[in-house]
Simulated assay, not measured.
Amino acid sequence: MQDARFTPRVFSGIKPSGGLTLGNYLGAIKRFVQMQGGGFETIYCVVDLHAITVWQDPKELRSATREVAAGFLASGIDPEKSILFNQSQVSQHAELAWIFNCVARLGWMNRMTQFKEKAGKNAEAQSLGLYAYPSLMAADILLYHATHVPVGEDQKQHVELTRDIAAKFNHDYKVDFFPMAEPVIEGPAMRVMNLRDGTKKMSKSGESDMERINMTDDADTIARKFQKARTDAAPLPESVEGLDGRPEARNLVEIYAALADITPAEVLARYPGAGWGTFKPALADLAVERLSPISGEMARMMADPAEIDRILARGAERARAIAQPVLSRTLDIVGMVRG
């Protein structure tokens, strides 16, 4: 149960590395829009400091940052109802992250599965930032005393680490300052999978563009990608249980469910026993209907980067107004001398 002393506040972000995909939209942005104006103060961030934990071409990083912001705005994030900014414009994130680097334990970081997955066999060659970025993620959340964090299942461990850091800070300094943020994991297609391998998450960095639906894809490209999406030979089952052991089939059904705002069971009720020759075109038509207005608005906004930059700068100003008092109080608690 949420502590009544803290304002109900949502924080979440998307990393600008590569373009936005359908996975970003269904797994994150669509839910961000739904939470806007729903009894929470909503703060959304393009987490460009997280992006540079691996090498980024500066020109491409600027473009990707603006594209993510355009995706937020085109999908329905209202910069008057929500705070939208890019992380590097609010230096308090990095300042609080250093404090948390000194609170978090090495053993906690060693248990972070995402670092192991990203580093692979070359862990020794990875940046310190990639290793420590869960501490920065904790700072992102706790800098705003966020109470709810909409994340995918793969990020739940990082929210749990955030809670551990908050608890240890409160315990060590004998305060009750940072809240216990709650991960919000709900809805169909919260983890959209690869169109060529249903056991892997849809990724911006996959080897083939056919693995993913980009938010900038045109109607013909979307239709072609769904038509060529990997499936098995069996038709759609009549119940959700029939999707067990069929990752590609489950993925396409869950994508349809999320786009149509219905449950996977309702999708199967619409297409009981349907073959892929029937279902894939229907899914493509639905995706084009839902995504074309967004991609069109993104293209319009990307043609005017100054307007995107203005919105992000204004959002950063509003974010700093919340963040600085939290950081200042944190520094006082820790014992830093300040003028």
Rank of each mutant, 00 (worst) to 15 (best):
V151S: 08
A229E: 03
E297P: 00
D309S: 04
Y44N: 09
S12L: 08
F169S: 11
E80H: 03
V46D: 04
I294Y: 06
P272A: 08
P183S: 13
E266A: 10
P183I: 15
T278H: 03
V192F: 00
L331M: 14
M301K: 15
A219F: 08
A139P: 07
E60M: 09
Y271T: 04
R191I: 15
G315E: 14
R66L: 08
K174H: 12
E41P: 02
V334C: 01
G13Q: 07
Q34L: 11
R338V: 10
N214H: 12
D172L: 12
G129R: 06
A4Y: 00
G37A: 10
M1A: 13
I165C: 04
A125T: 12
L26W: 07
G13P: 04
A269S: 08
R31D: 10
P264T: 11
I255S: 01
T53G: 00
A69G: 04
I255L: 03
S203V: 03
V68A: 02
Y25V: 06
G27N: 07
K59V: 14
Y133N: 02
T42N: 13
I311G: 02
G39E: 06
G13A: 09
L268H: 03
P8S: 01
Q56N: 04
Q324E: 14
K30C: 06
E124W: 00
T221E: 05
V159T: 10
V33N: 01
D220R: 11
K200M: 14
A321C: 08
Y256H: 02
V54Q: 12
G27L: 04
E124T: 08
P264V: 05
A181N: 10
A123Q: 14
I83C: 04
D78T: 07
L291E: 01
V54D: 07
K280G: 05
E297W: 00
A123Y: 06
K156Y: 10
H158N: 14
I77N: 02
I294N: 08
R310C: 11
G242F: 04
G315Q: 13
T330Y: 00
A223R: 15
I322Y: 10
G198Q: 11
A132W: 00
